[in-house]
Design a protein around this nucleic acid. Structure first.
Lengths: 236, 236
DNA sequence: ATTCAAAACGAACGAGCGTTCGCTATTTAA
DNA sequence: TTAAATAGCGAACGCTCGTTCGTTTTGAAT
């Protein structure tokens, strides 16, 4: 059996990923060992999972800013004072989620070098990675996407937006494909934006796709076939 | 010179639309004459424009729930009490924006019957209408899209989501095209979702498209050409 | 069983929230 | 010019917010 990314199924992706859904909060605790006041690991990990899960749930209803720490306390069963053993401040909670996703979770998917040289195949791997990561850690991606707008102005030093960076990375691969003669694309910037919009739609509107029984493999297959049509890939 | 939708440029669309950016708040005042306490029309229209503009600006920063009426008062130069001559309550303000867009503004674009019968052309008109309306009234669409998530749970009787309805309308047109033999599409539902995601991207990430000097015609052209590629339209 | 950090608790604080209302200023009509 | 009606004002109300901190509970090691 081939390994990712040659076997580009969701299952193969999960198999090679050096983290799984069960180990996320243990990683989370490690990552923020310095700022989390609670030192007894097992309890800390359990509570962090409770806190993050409830935060995703509550923030998705009315936005993080509108969520109160009393709501969070009620949902988690952890007292107001108890929460502050984990989070430092409300703003810092959002910051932790943001940092953990962009600095720890996302990089894990990029670790193993693809060993592919054709721009089209690199592009496929890039898109599939985005969909599969979004499937495994949907609430994280959703939260960061939704709150990035409000945080961007608060702390300007942070990357202005995931969007610009992601769009540029896609555009450069498309341009490389056009140069190599494998692709045909009149407007790489717009094509990159379109593909990114479809990636984001996957974790923004998960309810819609769940409703229609569309699983990660289905969506990734569709996204890649759309890419091939959009870029008129020669040999696909 | 041909008229919309035969001439499908942004300019032709604007020419036939029975409302323009200057007359929006006069229409807005008419629409809510019963609930707005201020009866002197000229002043009311001016203040409504100030209030809505500031609301769009503030809500886009941290979300409508996180925006305070004191912020709004400061931004508009209208006192707290003064605001309440126009809005009834904070929640009602969001409701007014929502209702005006969906019940008054959006229907205006659908008024003049397209007189087109081919599904592909209907689809093109539908997509261009969405882009052009989004261009003219971007803050309105942005606001409603962003706040629809938080309002949906508050008042369930309201349409569950624009998304489901829009996706279905697109899907039905695609299915009609496939039946007519003009199109080829393995998954109408996913194709409809992809097109909708691109439509929404236009008003959600206007900053990105402005940065790259992409105007409404550019984006609509790209969207339609993407549609043709995606659906393998025979005669385009 | 006792000890004692570690962790959780929840009342209390000042600030800011949405909303109200009595008052002043402005406009209109005679 | 005057009187009435309309529109705008902003302090005040009850409430909830994020955050703090002195106290109580928990749990592992002795």
């Amino acid at each position: 059996m081939q390994a990712w990314p040659v076997d580009n199924s969701f299952q193969a992706f999960k198999r090679q990923l050096p983290i799984c859904r069960n180990s996320v909060y243990s990683e989370f605790y490690d990552f923020f060992r310095d700022v989390i006041k609670v030192k007894r690991e097992s309890a800390a990990i359990k509570n962090l999972e409770t806190i993050c899960t409830a935060t995703f749930e509550l923030a998705s209803k009315h936005g993080f800013d509108a969520m109160s720490l009393r709501d969070l306390s009620r949902s988690t069963g952890i007292s107001m004072g108890g929460l502050y053993n984990y989070i430092g401040s409300k703003d810092e909670l959002a910051q932790m989620v943001n940092d953990f996703l962009s600095r720890r979770l996302a990089p894990m998917a990029a670790l193993n070098n693809p060993k592919q040289d054709k721009p089209r195949d690199l592009l496929e791997t890039l898109l599939r990675t985005a969909i599969y990561m979004g499937s495994l850690f949907r609430p994280w991606y959703r939260f960061v996407y939704m709150e990035s707008k409000t945080m961007a102005r608060k702390q300007r030093d942070q990357a202005k937006s995931f969007d610009l960076y992601d769009t540029q990375r896609l555009r450069e691969l498309i341009e490389a494909g056009v140069r190599a003669g494998d692709m045909d694309c009149a407007n790489p910037e717009l094509s990159a934006s379109a593909l990114l919009a479809m990636v984001q739609d996957w974790y923004l509107k998960s309810w819609k796709y769940k409703r229609n029984n569309i699983d990660p493999d289905d969506y990734a297959d569709f996204l890649v076939s759309t890419m091939d049509k959009l870029l008129a890939c020669k040999d696909q």
